[in-house]
Design a binder for these strands. Structure first.
Lengths: 152, 152
DNA sequence: CTGTTGGTTCTCCAAATAAAGAACAAACTT
DNA sequence: AAGTTTGTTCTTTATTTGGAGAACCAACAG
């Protein structure tokens, strides 16, 4: 059993991810795998800790794997899968998030294409937003670099 | 009536926002207000263009206003409201989005608090993620500045 | 005060989601 | 070959969501 702190934190993490489009159980599994000291759990452990059905866990784990949020390893002599969060790739995940946002500019460009010139100021704001998105996207790698340097 | 291009673009914009947690009609209204040459529409126009019920529009418009995505103005001698996207504040909106993401670090810090030291490497990755989030958050204002300078 | 315009609120319903549970299957054990 | 472990898949079900439609209301017009 998990203590109250951990349980509550799992729920918070669950809700956070839920609000970004994950289905509820997926977010909770992410929370669980973050909170467990060993940072991993088997299928059955997940079922027990979160008190949900096997089918729900099976489904959630598969989606999480497809989205590269988790992976699993096996241990010698065991058939069980040990699922864990691919924390070593947080940069990738975060970069994806950021690029995701800057996807706004792809459709904003299309907005500009279909808009007439009745509201030049409005159009100009859209232009600016697009430009900034470009700017930001290009900037991301150097942000990571700069960060790494500041750590060294 | 809107042409095929605009209609399709409205749907794309709708889906984009839907995936980030807006209810369907809200996203479509945002699309409509972006795509219309006048960049504004009355309540009834929205009902007609999108072919939905007044109740749905009323509800969606209220939420969009609460979230500061849209606003309305009135015109002399008319009672009608002209709703429009507050495009002049795209920086604010974007900054909010970015801060929203970096909210990850608030619960990641709590994760570190409850985690033991069994997996120091895992913990270290979390540390790094948190640090980068801080770094990014602090960097946002100077990114806007740098962008403005590059435009001038 | 009666009708009209512009919008809101309330009740109901259809569709989508997400999970339960049971049956199933593959791989390994004995 | 009979059972166990480790999941998966399929069917059913409870809950949530999102929008329709009608009744309602406030402001103004004649």
């Amino acid at each position: 059993m998990l203590n109250e702190n951990k349980l509550e934190l799992i729920e918070r993490i669950g809700v956070f991810h839920e609000q970004r489009g994950m289905q509820p159980l997926m977010g909770r599994i992410v929370g669980l795998l973050l909170v467990l000291d060993e940072a991993e759990a088997t299928f059955d452990e997940i079922v027990d800790y979160l008190n949900v059905s096997k089918s729900a866990v099976s489904n959630a784990l598969n989606i999480l794997q497809l989205q590269n949020h988790i992976a699993y390893k096996t241990k010698h002599g065991e058939r069980k899968r040990y699922f864990y969060i691919t924390m070593d790739r947080w940069e990738e995940a975060l970069e994806k998030e950021l690029c995701d946002i800057s996807e706004i500019s792809t459709f904003m460009k299309d907005v500009l294409k279909v808009r007439g010139d009745v509201k030049p100021e409005f159009n100009h704001h859209i232009q600016n937003l697009c430009s900034f998105m470009e700017f930001l996207k290009n900037k991301i790698p150097s942000l990571f670099n700069e960060f790494k340097k500041s750590k060294a």
